[in-house]
């Protein structure tokens, strides 16, 4: 029987586990990826700690986590409750808000650059012509991170709303009816019935948000490459730049380790939840 699991396990170990272990090792070496690695002890970590870009990248990861734990989650919760009250619109609207999630990140990034943020061809240009003076947020080191976050929120929040809606639809109708007969309005219903009713799903999504926020790479790399002036740099773009543009794989590996360390705490909680859930279902 165990032969059945072997191919999947083997591929996973070769592609993910072995290189992941090598990353931990490489963090303690000076290595350009091609030549012979040289033992470096903690030098990679010390260099990183002395690099202000590393600290701003780490801060940006925390800002990103804070944004994604609040903005898309709130939007999605309210939207899911609204869709619960509008059964006729539900199916069509659910597909519409889900749509951004299936469009390739590279395409979404470029569409936002050209059609929304561009001071020549975007909504920003149109607003400038109509008396609102707005500069391109992607060109501003202080605002670029938030501009990219806005793109990712557009891509993400509808999916989250659909997840919350599926969870809310599992709440028994009797419970909702009973609350309504007791005179609960929208916000009371939301606060005392819907949110507690989907708590397990909500908790899981919040944990996954923390895990993903420390891994965020694609949107930032595509839209700003961590710039301008490292304004939107995060740990993942920091690591990628060191590995492939500066030939310093040891430094990249050290950054990847720090990244994983933050994700690891959230991952531990995630695994614990999944395992206890799994033990109940099997």
């Amino acid at each position: 029987m165990w032969l059945f699991a072997l191919p999947a396990l083997l591929i996973n170990i070769c592609i993910i586990l072995v290189p992941a272990v090598l990353t931990f090792t490489a963090a303690f070496f000076i290595w350009d990826g091609v030549g012979t690695p040289m033992w470096a002890g903690l030098a990679n970590f010390q260099n990183m700690a002395a690099d202000p870009v590393f600290w701003s990248a780490l801060t940006n990861n925390f800002i990103w986590t804070a944004i994604f734990l609040t903005v898309p989650v709130c939007l999605a919760l309210v939207m899911a409750a609204a869709l619960l009250m509008a059964p006729k619109a539900r199916i069509v609207v659910q597909s519409i808000i889900f749509l951004p999630r299936i469009i390739a990140v590279a395409v979404t990034g470029r569409i936002f650059q050209g059609m929304i943020f561009s001071p020549a061809t975007g909504i920003v240009a149109w607003l400038n012509e109509h008396g609102f003076s707005i500069s391109d947020p992607l060109a501003d080191p202080d605002r670029s991170l938030y501009a990219v976050a806005a793109v990712d929120i557009w891509h993400w929040w509808g999916f989250l709303a659909v997840v919350f809606l599926s969870a809310m639809r599992q709440i028994s109708v009797d419970q909702i009816e009973a609350a309504r007969l007791d005179g609960a309005g929208f916000f009371a219903l939301f606060r005392y019935v819907l949110i507690p009713g989907i708590r397990p799903t909500l908790t899981l999504m919040l944990i996954l948000t923390v895990i993903w926020s420390f891994q965020v790479f694609e949107f930032i790399f595509i839209v700003t490459r961590g710039g301008p002036a490292y304004g939107s740099e995060v740990l993942a773009t920091f690591a990628y730049r060191h590995a492939f543009f500066e030939g310093d794989v040891g430094q990249a590996a050290a950054a990847a380790c720090v990244m994983s360390l933050f994700g690891l705490c959230a991952t531990a909680v995630y695994l614990w939840l999944q395992i206890t859930d799994d033990a109940q279902s099997t």
């Binding site: 290189p19 090598l22 690591a239 590996a253 990244m259 994983s260």
Partner: peptide, 23 residues
């Protein structure tokens, strides 16, 4: 084994990308 597969779902690409590329 189940636990191992669950863990790899949340592993960032960055954790294995660099050695994998050079291998």
């Amino acid at each position: 084994i189940t636990f191992y597969f669950m863990a790899t779902i949340t592993v960032p690409v960055q954790l294995y990308l660099y050695p994998l590329y050079f291998i």
